[in-house]
């Protein structure tokens, strides 16, 4: 049911963990749905230098979290803000239809982290 890319990111997730001195942190999801994603950012200048994640959730939730970290690293925050959940799913060659709701929140978590960064670092 999952694509090879999903299984690759699920079984070898990239950038798992926390960033000790993160300057933006975002979390989305809740326990009812069974998916919670937390994203840690290290932003320097306007560029995302490092991203890490922690996720409670199904295979799709972990794979999308992993993928969003790869997509975000090196991007400016404006570029990262236009990343959509859909784009993350597409980068994984798609998700099963049932997974498009709760489990596909990784870009939202990234945006929350950027929002947190912006609140803490008003331009």
């Amino acid at each position: 049911m999952y694509t090879e890319k999903v299984m690759d990111h699920f079984s070898n997730p990239r950038n798992v963990g926390e960033i000790a001195n993160a300057n933006g942190v975002g979390e989305v999801g809740n326990a009812s749905c069974g998916d919670i994603m937390k994203i840690y950012l290290k932003v320097e200048g306007d560029v995302i230098q490092d991203v890490k994640f922690k996720t409670f959730g199904c295979g799709a939730a972990i794979a999308t979290s992993s993928m969003v970290t790869e997509l975000a690293i090196g991007k400016t925050i404006d570029e990262a803000l236009v990343l959509t959940n859909q784009a993350v799913a597409e980068a994984l060659d798609g998700l099963p239809p049932a997974k498009m709701h709760c489990s596909n929140l990784a870009a939202d978590a990234l945006h929350e982290a950027i929002k947190d960064y912006r609140e803490k670092h008003p331009a």
Binding site: A31, S32, K54, F56, H101, C102
Partner: peptide, 22 residues
């Protein structure tokens, strides 16, 4: 567990979701 934001967590776990019906 190392991957889970709920493991060794200090803040409360977000529980409810408006979109989901229990």
């Amino acid at each position: 567990r190392e991957m889970s934001p709920l493991y060794n967590r200090e803040e409360p776990t977000p529980l409810s979701c408006d979109e989901c019906r229990m």
